[in-house]
Computed example of a mutant assay.
Amino acid sequence: MVHGGTSGIGSLAVQWAKALGARVLTTAGTPHKVAQAISLGADTAINHREEDFTIAVREATDGRGADVVLDMVGAPYLARNIRAVAQDGRIVMIGGDMSSTVLDIGELMAKRGSVAATTLRTRSRSQKAEIVDAVRTHLWPMVADGQIRPVVGHIVPMDEASRAHQLLAEGNVVGKVVMTP
């Protein structure tokens, strides 16, 4: 399951998981974004403003839950991610609200689940270089052959940076906002 399946990272994750043969569930916040997530390859797209994604994930997986949850929302979703993840599943947190939250370790242990939190910002140059090499090797060929395509929601001149921020704040962007010189 990919949270924010029409965000810049989410739109890539949906396509990549699908290209690797995964069954992909995602969350989105509007009917338009739900439709866009499906067009990117999601098998199930859940409007998190209209339904509880934990219930929707259970229904879509015949009660099993998601093997992997990719989370860009952070602390507000942690408890629900634990409810949505499958036995032996993994929750990978890569951004969002990183404020303190309560982790129900008992529920996580009962599922033999794990939570990983990571960011690129704190990695060394050599670690970042390894990631770039892995992207070139494993992801870039799928972009080159068209299995994965970049999703650009808006192109905004650099001198209109405030408009780019406004577009993001409004929450209606599908894909990335690209700023040009």
Rank of each mutant, 00 (worst) to 15 (best):
H3F: 04
T101Q: 11
V14K: 07
E130G: 04
T101N: 12
T122Y: 15
M158P: 14
G89S: 08
E107M: 10
T44S: 10
N172C: 15
G146S: 03
Q15Y: 03
G175R: 07
G96T: 00
V102S: 15
A22W: 11
A22P: 14
V177I: 09
N81P: 04
G74Q: 14
A84H: 09
V2A: 02
A56W: 03
V132H: 06
P157Q: 10
Q127G: 06
V69C: 06
A110Y: 08
K111T: 07
F53R: 06
L25Y: 07
I9P: 07
A45R: 01
I82P: 04
S100K: 14
T44D: 13
I82Q: 06
L20W: 12
L168I: 11
L25P: 07
G106F: 12
A45T: 00
P31S: 00
L12Q: 13
R64V: 15
T122L: 15
Q127K: 06
A45Q: 01
P31F: 01
R112F: 03
G41W: 08
G153R: 13
Q147R: 09
L78R: 08
T27P: 08
R64H: 15
P31Y: 01
Q36L: 07
N172T: 14
Q127M: 12
M179P: 13
I91L: 01
A164Y: 08
V73I: 13
A19Q: 05
Y77E: 06
A60D: 04
V143S: 00
V143P: 02
L120A: 05
Q127C: 04
V152R: 07
K128I: 09
I131V: 05
S39T: 09
R80G: 13
I131G: 02
L70Y: 15
H48G: 11
A164P: 03
H48E: 03
R112N: 06
D71N: 03
V178L: 10
A37G: 08
G89Y: 07
V24M: 09
V69M: 02
H3L: 00
T118Y: 11
V92N: 12
E50R: 10
V178W: 11
A19L: 08
I105R: 10
V69Y: 03
V2C: 08
